[in-house]
Simulated scan of single mutants.
Amino acid sequence: MLRYKNFLSLFFISTLLTVLLVAFISLWEVITPHNLVDQVIIIEPGASFIQVADELKDMGVINSPFILTSYKKFFRPKSFIKSGEYLINSNDSPISIVDNLFEGRVLFHQFTIIEGWTFTQLLNNLRSHSVVNATNMTDSEIIDRLGINLDSLEGQFLAETYNFVRGDSDIDILTNAHNLLKDTLNEAWKIGKNNVLNDPYQALVLASIIEKETALSDERYIISGVFTKRLEKKMRLQSDPTVIYGLGNNFSGDITKDDLNDLNEYNTYRIDGLPPTPICLVGKDSILSAVFPDNNNYLYFVATGNSDGKHFFSSSLADHNRAVEKYLSNIKY
């Protein structure tokens, strides 16, 4: 009888130790990272948890799909994985990976709209992005989809960085960029102090010219002041970027006298006031500079010709002509 009791005790202890060992191994399996490098997994809609667990094993992220499925069964029986693209970091444990799949913590990509891009440049870069789903919608279809009451999409998207996920389309990103442009422009217009402009769209047009004239934030407000002063005095803006935009593919790379005399609706050497549309996509700072022009007496400016991108500003034509001579002298050396 005593031998039988000893046997039962030994059997119980052995069984308990085995259970504890299995539990320890299972716990170690789910809390210890097995991934040596960062990897990406794409979960297709309708994929089962077992399919995903097998794929994770094939990727070397986990050792045992059974242990992972057991974790789901006992600890998250009502949870379901969500489709999408997920980043698996080298220090992620199997349990944290699965939790990310349950919670839908998908991988975000970024797309940056560069200040000064034209809409054509934006669309080409957007549709060539490897993760963006290109819809190939026409300009008129995009205008209809976004509810824009204009004939041109130029300037209608804020230059900014946007987050998106795999599967998002070009129109998804364009929608976000257009909505942010509207919000930014309308807010700036409400608090702005440029009385020479009639509406937010004119502010956007002016902002686009400022955007192309300088990349220096502190000069944008000064240049805005120059253009505002010229508009007040009914002087033509005489902005080279508007000439270049109006020429389109006919621009040779250097502005000529014929270019300045070209009769097109964007050539501010030939037209009064602002051109009919923006000439590029703008950032927030250019919008703010358009509605908050610097209060100065300058009527002219020209590049210094130095590598810093700065300009000479003048109040008289005589001073401006001397600045032009200095610019020409600087670019010779």
Rank of each mutant, 00 (worst) to 15 (best):
S48E: 08
G60D: 04
I67G: 04
K78P: 00
S90I: 05
S64Y: 10
F66E: 15
V30D: 09
D99R: 09
G46M: 10
D92H: 13
P65E: 10
G46S: 12
G60I: 02
F49W: 02
I97K: 03
I67H: 06
G84Q: 07
F75C: 08
I62C: 10
D58L: 12
V61L: 11
W28G: 15
D99K: 11
N91T: 12
H34W: 03
N89F: 04
S93N: 11
S93Y: 12
P45R: 05
S26W: 11
N35T: 04
Q51E: 14
I97M: 07
I31C: 06
P45I: 08
W28Y: 13
V40H: 07
N89Q: 15
S79K: 14
F75W: 06
P33C: 14
F66A: 14
S70R: 00
S26P: 07
S96A: 14
V40F: 13
I88Q: 04
L56F: 02
A47F: 09
P33D: 08
P94Y: 11
R76D: 13
F49P: 00
P45N: 09
V98K: 00
I43H: 06
N35Y: 05
I88S: 03
M59Q: 08
S64W: 08
L68M: 12
E29Q: 09
V52H: 00
A53E: 01
E44T: 14
E44K: 15
V52R: 00
V40S: 09
D58T: 05
V37I: 12
V98E: 01
M59D: 06
E85L: 11
R76Q: 12
V98N: 01
I31K: 04
I31H: 07
E29F: 05
N89L: 11
I31N: 10
I95R: 06
S48M: 10
I81P: 03
A47T: 08
S64H: 10
I43N: 06
I62W: 07
R76L: 03
F74Q: 01
Q39Y: 05
I62M: 09
K72L: 03
K82I: 14
I62E: 10
M59C: 02
I97D: 05
G46H: 11
K73G: 01
V37T: 13
F75H: 07
L56H: 01
L101H: 01
K82R: 10
K73S: 01
F75R: 10
L27E: 14
Q51R: 04
S64D: 14
I62N: 08
P94G: 13
E85G: 12
I95N: 06
V40Y: 12
D99Q: 10
